[in-house]
Design a protein around this nucleic acid. Structure first.
Lengths: 241, 241
DNA sequence: CGGAATGTTGATATGCCTCAACTAAAGTGG
DNA sequence: CCACTTTAGTTGAGGCATATCAACATTCCG
């Protein structure tokens, strides 16, 4: 079922005709399960297939010379977090499973063939990579210009909003299998600060993060605290948000 | 001449056949001059043409509710800094001329037509947007995980390296029409700190930034201070660097 | 030539990091 | 299944990198 997952995800932002879908359905793939924290691709590797998240969650990160990680983005079911590998020879960052994850690998040549045959499919996946880029831009701003409370609120708001768009939210809860260390490595803050900021958010009544689960108690509040404006996610308007 | 500028730029990383080039040559365009600091496109706009920098330099930025700007990236001759507008309806950030800039606007429908006819052209521009994304990723890491000295060194190293790849460096100097305020808004630091960090870099003998010009005195030193590894720029290896 | 924008420098304040010690939970082998 | 080890989370105290504020110098520009 990787095809239907991919189609569903692409249709969140792009129009696909029956022929386009048929093209996608003909893609071959290999599925593999990854352990918690296992790398899917590493900085320096030259991928020959694109990864599609079928279950679980994954993260992209840079590895600094000091050994410190910088998480760049998190991805969930339906995302193709290394689509950029299609046209870029060497990975400049790594991709790892957070908790366990099931990944479908679609060979690049297969994809290129469909792109040439059905340009709209290439446009849809291109769009996917462009939304990625806009998420990165927002992360620059978030980590550079916002104090820790707003910064964390913004990340949580983004994750919740994207999960909601992908229908992964149940009762205002999203699985978010991150340790405090990882949260810190995403937001550029020390663990102690992560903990205290988490506490402050909880006491403010907007979100809770515990047991690898994010629970949104007060969306308006959270969005406001994080100065969150979903324009940059380029998702069709979601009702009730 | 926008066509030749574009072709030259794309060929820095992509192979194009004569037919591909012919397709590009048929693109229509409109040229416009922009004043220093004038916006080329604004957050919220829906562009119908893609901007190609023909001379000068431009910057992309977010505008926060506080009024503060966060610069996201800088672009020079040959770059298409809003190619993402091709497949994303609304701008989530703005684009402005730094000093004066001359911009060629290529209508989206023209580009799409060429993409459908000659997929390799779309792949080349896609790759352009992917390199953009990798620059954003690096900025996340730079602004989140490096102390101010390394952070500034890294930005300067990147700009110099890219300028060099585009043959815009003369005698180790690149035009870089930024004010200290703007530098601060790119690096997430206060103006006073920008100034002091600039001083420290100069005294370390690696770079000087004055008169809107960046002068690299000691490349090795600069690259080391900024932990700069050009892998993420995905440019063919440049001799002597 | 005068006013505004930009750059320079010092003094002080503070948000967040570092360090450290401790608790709780989770995983491991006997 | 329990003791034991390891990993993850919690909390306090103190220090430091960088922000903030302020006053002044300089360049730009009409």
């Amino acid at each position: 079922m990787p095809h239907s997952i991919l189609v569903k995800n692409l249709r969140e932002h792009s129009k696909l005709t029956d022929e386009d879908v048929a093209g996608i359905t003909r893609l071959s793939y290999v599925v593999r399960q990854f352990e918690p924290n296992e790398d899917i691709i590493r900085q320096g590797d030259t991928p020959t297939a694109a990864a599609l998240v079928m279950s679980g969650a994954v993260g992209r990160y840079h590895l600094l010379s000091s050994g410190r990680r910088q998480y760049l983005s998190f991805h969930m079911v339906g995302d193709m977090p290394d689509a950029q590998g299609l046209f870029i020879d060497q990975m400049d960052h790594s991709l790892c499973a957070l908790d366990g994850a099931v990944i479908a690998f679609i060979p690049h040549p297969d994809l290129i063939k469909v792109f040439k045959l059905r340009p709209p499919v290439s446009f849809a996946i291109w769009r996917e990579t462009l939304i990625d880029a806009s998420i990165f831009r927002e992360a620059i701003t978030n980590n550079s210009a916002r104090p820790v409370l707003a910064r964390m609120a913004h990340l949580f708001a983004e994750i919740f909003y994207r999960a909601r768009a992908s229908k992964l939210v149940r009762h205002d809860r999203v699985p978010l299998p991150l340790s405090l260390v990882q949260l810190g490595e995403a937001l550029g803050m020390a663990i102690a600060t992560v903990n205290r900021t988490l506490l402050e958010l909880r006491e403010g009544g907007s979100v809770e993060f515990a047991d690898k689960t994010l629970t949104v108690k007060n969306w308006e509040n959270l969005a406001k605290t994080g100065e969150f404006d979903p324009l940059y996610l380029h998702v069709k308007k979601i009702p009730l948000l």
